[in-house]
Design a protein around this nucleic acid. Structure first.
Lengths: 227, 227
DNA sequence: CGAGGTATTGATATCTTTCAATTGGTGTGG
DNA sequence: CCACACCAATTGAAAGATATCAATACCTCG
């Protein structure tokens, strides 16, 4: 699933059981390496495949005329991405970390060609996607900068974090700009908010691209309350 | 499709051909009347059905702990709503106008029981939904109040408006609060923005619940540019 | 070591929200 | 039929949050 929301909303979405296991290779599937910075697909491309991420991180974006960009989602291992609209892709998908995907033929989604199991799995992923996006709506529309950043860190930590004692470290493979465009904020606000969390002793930024969550309770609190 | 975005992004979503025609009744489908103010389903309900709206207007919402509410979408005739997450509904769906739906068994989505045609149609609706929601992300995250309200009016007019000479009238069956919660604004900001459009001679509010769009060009301009 | 991109920090501006009051419309009962 | 109550919408003034503009610090790579 996409990095989209904190678990408070769609438990099913983030439940470990559903996540990072991979279908056994089947007819019509194919493994594919993806170099950092390269596009898996672009907006307007004919959508021949749907992809399951097995390694690395992707960034899905759309761009407005004015140049304003929205990061729709970050794709992490276990996520299924590239659901077409009609026959076309409707977002840009770029690897921001060396990645690997399994490509499923698009056809597998509207037929049972690839097997019932594959069909069901792709469909479920699409439905979970809808649910997750609804959560992201609340995030974008109804949360403050602090709540957004805190929620984001929590979700990322749940998905990709490593426990170290009672703490959790977590890589931030995306830039501040990516995070900002995902949360509907500016780079400066993201930076300031991270600084605030740091000064409040809730997180430590070991490097620009690594967070250590020292006080998960406080982080969860920050993600939920406005006052 | 959901009232979600201006056509600038997902042409397929709003294209007339895809929209308001209705499947011939099939096994497992059932017509249903829905009184104003009554719920079609609620968050957490077992999702037995997926619905196609044939008349009326629905409001889909989710609520945050703090009471903050998000209107996920407005459901208009031709829209398909109620895609489940797992076996459950993940939003509340209430008729805000006397409505009628066709209920499809949920099972029709992951099997061909209801016929290939039904399956394909439901699936396509789900995929279009994903695309439309992505557009709504841009709306929520990257548009000003004026752009949001203008975009909203345009989409609504395209979906439900009636041309009157070179103008277009359009009902606003939802309250200002509903619009605000859909766009991620407050009631006051929505009201002020409508007033501004009115003073700029772009729209006329014939009643609180009816808009007349006098200058579509200007409205489109307002929906796109920030400056 | 210097260049170029990324991130942080500061000061100020702008937009939206918040709080508060008023208006408008609708339905009910006297 | 009018008065009143109630709820939705509008309008105003002030506060607050985030964006914008600008400068500086930090890193990585030649």
């Amino acid at each position: 699933m996409y990095v989209t929301l904190s678990n408070e909303f769609t438990p099913a979405t983030n439940s470990p059981e559903l996540r990072p296991y991979t279908l056994s290779p089947e007819a019509g599937t194919q493994r594919k390496q993806q170099a950092i910075g390269s596009h898996l697909f672009r907006e307007g491309d004919i959508a021949n495949n749907i992809y399951e991420i097995t390694a690395g991180v992707f960034r899905l974006t759309r761009v407005l005329d004015n140049g304003r960009r929205q990061v729709i989602a970050f794709g992490l291992p276990g996520d299924i991405i590239g659901f077409p609209n009609g026959t076309l892709h409707h977002s840009n998908c770029e690897a921001i970390q060396t990645a690997e995907v399994i490509a499923y033929r698009r056809h597998a989604l509207d037929s049972f060609d690839g097997g019932h199991e594959t069909h069901k799995r792709l469909l479920d992923a699409a439905l979970r996607e809808i649910s997750a996006m609804q959560d992201h709506f609340m995030m974008l529309a109804r949360k403050s900068a602090l709540e957004k950043v805190a929620s984001f860190l929590i979700t990322l930590a749940e998905r990709t974090g490593t426990p170290i004692g009672k703490y959790t470290t977590c890589a931030l493979p995306m830039t501040r700009g990516d995070i900002a465009d995902f949360l509907g904020l500016t780079i400066e606000t993201v930076s300031r908010t991270l600084t605030r969390l740091r000064k409040d002793n809730i997180i430590v930024l070991e490097t620009t691209q690594t967070v250590l969550i020292k006080d998960m309770t406080a982080l969860v609190a920050a993600s939920q309350v406005a006052d």
